[in-house]
Amino acid sequence: MAIIHLTRDAFDKAVASGVSMVDFWATWCGPCRMLAPVMEELAGQYEGRALVGKVDVDAEQDLAVRFGVMSIPTVIFFKDGQEVDRKVGVMPPSSYTDALDGLL
Protein backbone atom coordinates (compact mmCIF):
# COMPACT_ATOMS: atom_id res chain seq x y z
CA MET A 1 0.00 0.00 0.00
CA ALA A 2 1.33 3.40 -0.92
CA ILE A 3 1.75 6.06 1.69
CA ILE A 4 -1.44 8.05 2.33
CA HIS A 5 -1.44 11.82 1.91
CA LEU A 6 -3.66 13.19 4.63
CA THR A 7 -5.70 16.38 4.42
CA ARG A 8 -7.52 18.27 7.15
CA ASP A 9 -10.86 16.74 6.20
CA ALA A 10 -9.57 13.18 6.04
CA PHE A 11 -7.24 13.25 9.01
CA ASP A 12 -9.39 12.38 12.02
CA LYS A 13 -11.17 9.53 10.29
CA ALA A 14 -7.90 8.12 8.99
CA VAL A 15 -6.20 7.88 12.39
CA ALA A 16 -9.35 7.18 14.44
CA SER A 17 -8.66 3.53 15.07
CA GLY A 18 -5.56 1.41 15.35
CA VAL A 19 -1.96 2.54 15.06
CA SER A 20 -0.90 5.36 12.75
CA MET A 21 2.37 7.07 11.96
CA VAL A 22 2.16 10.48 10.29
CA ASP A 23 5.10 12.33 8.76
CA PHE A 24 4.74 16.14 8.74
CA TRP A 25 6.90 17.41 5.90
CA ALA A 26 7.33 20.03 3.15
CA THR A 27 8.51 19.82 -0.43
CA TRP A 28 11.36 22.31 0.11
CA CYS A 29 12.76 20.58 3.20
CA GLY A 30 15.89 18.53 2.46
CA PRO A 31 15.78 16.37 5.60
CA CYS A 32 12.11 15.61 4.79
CA ARG A 33 13.13 14.36 1.36
CA MET A 34 15.71 12.12 3.08
CA LEU A 35 12.97 10.60 5.16
CA ALA A 36 10.51 10.11 2.29
CA PRO A 37 11.90 6.77 0.99
CA VAL A 38 12.06 5.43 4.57
CA MET A 39 8.37 6.25 5.08
CA GLU A 40 7.46 4.69 1.71
CA GLU A 41 9.19 1.50 2.68
CA LEU A 42 7.55 1.37 6.11
CA ALA A 43 4.14 1.94 4.50
CA GLY A 44 4.68 -1.31 2.61
CA GLN A 45 6.23 -3.15 5.54
CA TYR A 46 3.36 -2.31 7.92
CA GLU A 47 0.56 -2.68 5.39
CA GLY A 48 -2.60 -3.93 7.08
CA ARG A 49 -1.14 -3.35 10.55
CA ALA A 50 -0.54 0.39 10.77
CA LEU A 51 -1.45 3.44 8.72
CA VAL A 52 1.53 5.38 7.41
CA GLY A 53 0.58 8.87 6.30
CA LYS A 54 2.07 12.19 5.30
CA VAL A 55 0.96 15.76 5.89
CA ASP A 56 2.30 18.53 3.67
CA VAL A 57 2.58 21.40 6.17
CA ASP A 58 2.34 24.04 3.41
CA ALA A 59 -0.94 22.68 2.10
CA GLU A 60 -2.28 21.70 5.53
CA GLN A 61 -1.22 24.50 7.85
CA ASP A 62 -4.23 23.89 10.10
CA LEU A 63 -3.02 20.38 10.87
CA ALA A 64 0.51 21.58 11.59
CA VAL A 65 -0.83 24.19 14.02
CA ARG A 66 -3.28 21.76 15.61
CA PHE A 67 -0.50 19.30 16.44
CA GLY A 68 1.99 21.97 17.39
CA VAL A 69 4.44 20.97 14.67
CA MET A 70 7.20 23.58 14.78
CA SER A 71 10.04 21.71 13.16
CA ILE A 72 10.09 19.40 10.16
CA PRO A 73 10.26 16.56 9.67
CA THR A 74 8.17 15.62 12.71
CA VAL A 75 6.70 12.13 12.84
CA ILE A 76 3.73 11.67 15.17
CA PHE A 77 2.41 8.30 16.32
CA PHE A 78 -1.28 7.83 17.09
CA LYS A 79 -3.19 5.03 18.76
CA ASP A 80 -6.96 5.14 18.30
CA GLY A 81 -6.75 8.80 17.38
CA GLN A 82 -4.63 9.88 20.37
CA GLU A 83 -1.05 11.07 20.01
CA VAL A 84 1.22 8.68 21.91
CA ASP A 85 4.70 9.56 20.68
CA ARG A 86 6.56 11.88 18.33
CA LYS A 87 10.02 12.04 16.79
CA VAL A 88 11.58 15.27 15.59
CA GLY A 89 14.17 15.28 12.84
CA VAL A 90 15.48 12.42 10.74
CA MET A 91 16.00 9.23 12.74
CA PRO A 92 17.31 5.84 11.66
CA PRO A 93 14.54 3.53 10.33
CA SER A 94 14.79 1.33 13.44
CA SER A 95 13.65 4.25 15.56
CA TYR A 96 10.31 4.31 13.70
CA THR A 97 9.88 0.54 13.59
CA ASP A 98 10.62 0.27 17.33
CA ALA A 99 7.91 2.83 18.05
CA LEU A 100 5.41 1.09 15.77
CA ASP A 101 6.21 -2.37 17.12
CA GLY A 102 5.74 -1.06 20.66
CA LEU A 103 2.25 0.14 19.80
CA LEU A 104 1.10 -2.89 17.83
Binding site: C29, G30, M70, S71, I72, R86, V88, G89
Partner: peptide, 12 residues
Amino acid sequence: LGRGVSYCATCD
Protein backbone atom coordinates in the same frame (compact mmCIF):
# COMPACT_ATOMS: atom_id res chain seq x y z
CA LEU B 1 13.15 20.01 20.45
CA GLY B 2 10.51 20.49 17.76
CA ARG B 3 8.30 22.24 20.31
CA GLY B 4 10.00 25.59 20.07
CA VAL B 5 13.63 24.50 19.89
CA SER B 6 15.10 24.32 16.39
CA TYR B 7 18.55 23.81 14.87
CA CYS B 8 17.66 25.10 11.41
CA ALA B 9 16.43 28.60 10.53
CA THR B 10 15.67 27.84 6.89
CA CYS B 11 13.81 24.62 7.77
CA ASP B 12 11.61 25.83 10.59
